[in-house]
Design a protein around this nucleic acid. Structure first.
Length: 168
DNA sequence: GCCAACGTTGGC
DNA sequence: GCCAACGTTGGC
């Protein structure tokens, strides 16, 4: 029996929602709209729980990398953008009575220094990270506890990590 | 803007 | 159920 995953990485395009945008939102919490991949959706629906740790990753930008620390702040519910014809995330094939796409709330906890993708690749300890695997395109993915610890140790002081309550 | 890699679609 | 064509992701 494996213990449930407790750590995640979630990609956001900073043009749409940066760590600064998240921190500036009410309760520093944003609804994670726009996930349109079944595997990512299933992670949110089946495995992510309030309190899980999240690496807030900036993608599709000049400096891709980890930009902050967050936590899962709710369970899933229907993503309303799938039903909005004006939204780039509109999905006309999603039935209203059985929504195809879900979102959950993410609460930003800290903005960190940017830990760029190139730096992540330099650490042998992180070579197994899903993010770094060839051709990876998932926008929501698991982070192994040792990877989480290794990264947080480089982004936060130990007392800060404790204060966030998302140890270990 | 390019392009490799991947997921999805749809004809058969 | 196969698989080619297509669209998307995302780093560079």
């Amino acid at each position: 029996m494996t213990s449930p995953a407790r750590f995640w990485l979630m990609k956001s395009e900073p043009d749409e929602c940066s760590i600064d945008d998240a921190l500036a939102s009410p309760q520093a919490t944003v609804a994670w709209t726009g996930v349109r991949n079944y595997q990512a959706r299933n992670f949110m629906r089946d495995q992510m729980r309030p309190g899980d740790g999240v690496l807030f990753y900036h993608s599709s930008c000049a400096e891709p990398g980890i930009a902050g620390i967050a936590r899962v702040a709710s369970g899933t519910r229907a993503d309303p953008t799938q039903f909005d014809p004006a939204s780039p995330y509109h999905d006309p094939r999603s039935p209203e009575d059985s929504p195809r796409w879900l979102l959950l709330d993410v609460q930003a906890l800290r903005k960190t220094r940017l830990m760029p993708l190139a730096e992540l690749r330099q650490h042998p300890e992180l070579a197994g990270m899903r993010l770094l695997q060839r051709g990876n395109r998932l926008s929501v993915m698991e982070v192994q506890p040792p990877e989480w610890q290794f990264i947080l140790a480089r982004l936060l002081g130990p007392e800060d990590a404790l204060a966030l309550g998302i140890g270990p």
